[in-house]
Simulated scan of single mutants.
Amino acid sequence: MNIHNKQIKDAFDAKSLIKVIAGIDNTNIKNVIKIAKAADLSQATYIDIAANVKLVKILKKISQLPICISSINSIDIYNCILAGADIIEIGNYDFFYNKGIYLTAEQIISLVLEVKSFKANIDICVTIPYYISLFEQMQLAKKLYIIGVNILQTEGISKLHKLQSPGSCFDLINVKNTFLPSLLSTYMISKSVNIPVITASGSKNIISHIPSNYGASGIGVGSSLKNQMSIRDIVKYINQSYCYMMSSDLLMNDCHGVNYNLRAILRTSLIFKK
């Protein structure tokens, strides 16, 4: 599947993509700018923000990274495309789960078709909902592939609504780690379609090397960044994630020492190349 943005394509090809998630409901300009600045200084590939025109315009001026907006509102998506968004994501559903909103596969496909009519050559990422069965997830992935979606993302179980989520194939009472269901979905979906898959739920820096073994071409980090107090801390955390993703056994012990300036070092180091 063709990826339009070269920066993202190169990261997918190297299975080194890191998406930094600012939050679909985070419209705090100061906080989003802080995360964006850290992403720019780190090994992040792109930043995922709320579908807010003002945020898009600000980040397009201050960031060198591709800007992704997440929404299920077609009007917000259209306006953000006009504002310069590089990638569209139909996903990061947790915000909507909190409101009791669960999209059907048919609604997702309909929204994708509408978004594709806005701009033909824009990258579209779709999160496959956790609350449908694995078979339905694979079927949805195949349909999205057919209509031209070029990035997929998996998610784990929503902590707030895990007990009342309809139709999930998991034992929702006993699954406490959202990372594991996301890994399972990643594995099954990556076997079903030839589209890059991002594993985004519950990922921590020290386990960021695991998803690639299950078919992922990248990871998303978001909630784990909330515990990082400064730009420097965020940069360090993202770079540690990258280091673990790309390291051999020889380098695993060095990942905790990833520093603020590692970006330039990693780009020129042959040891990180496949």
Rank of each mutant, 00 (worst) to 15 (best):
I75G: 02
F170M: 10
I24C: 00
G156F: 04
A44R: 13
F95G: 00
I132E: 11
S269H: 10
N92A: 04
N261P: 00
N227K: 14
D254T: 14
F170W: 14
K162L: 02
T186P: 04
D254P: 00
L266D: 00
A38G: 15
I207M: 10
S201D: 02
Y78E: 15
V149L: 10
L251V: 03
S230Q: 06
K99E: 08
S168M: 09
Q228N: 11
G215E: 07
S241V: 05
K142Q: 13
D76M: 06
I67C: 01
I81F: 08
H256W: 02
L17D: 13
K15Y: 04
M138Q: 13
H256Q: 13
V175H: 05
V53R: 14
S182V: 02
S63L: 02
M138E: 06
M138V: 10
I124V: 13
G167Y: 13
Q107K: 15
I231W: 08
I29R: 12
L111K: 13
S110V: 00
V258L: 00
N227E: 11
Q137C: 15
S269C: 07
D171L: 13
N205A: 15
S203Q: 12
G222C: 05
A11Y: 05
K274F: 04
N261A: 10
C255K: 02
I108M: 09
Q7M: 12
I75F: 10
S133R: 08
T127W: 00
G202V: 07
N213M: 10
N121V: 01
I147A: 11
A22I: 01
V20A: 07
N98G: 15
S192W: 03
L17S: 13
M245K: 12
K236G: 03
V126W: 06
K191H: 11
N92F: 00
A14T: 08
Y102C: 04
A141G: 12
S133I: 04
I72V: 14
T178E: 09
F118S: 01
I173D: 05
Q228C: 09
T45L: 07
I3T: 13
V112L: 07
S223I: 02
P66M: 06
N261S: 13
H4C: 08
T186A: 07
P166K: 14
K30V: 09
M252C: 05
E89T: 01
A11C: 10
A200P: 04
L82Q: 15
L55Q: 04
A36N: 04
K176Y: 06
K116F: 00
H4T: 12
V221W: 03
Y214A: 05
N26T: 01
S269Q: 10
L55K: 05
I77C: 05
K99Q: 14
D94N: 14
L41H: 11
V126H: 08
K54G: 02
N121M: 01
G222F: 03
I101L: 10
L250D: 13
N261H: 12
F179M: 12
K273G: 00
K9P: 04
I109E: 12
V112C: 13
Y187K: 11
Q240R: 15
I47W: 09
Y93K: 01
C255L: 01
D249G: 01
F135Y: 10
A85C: 08
C169M: 09
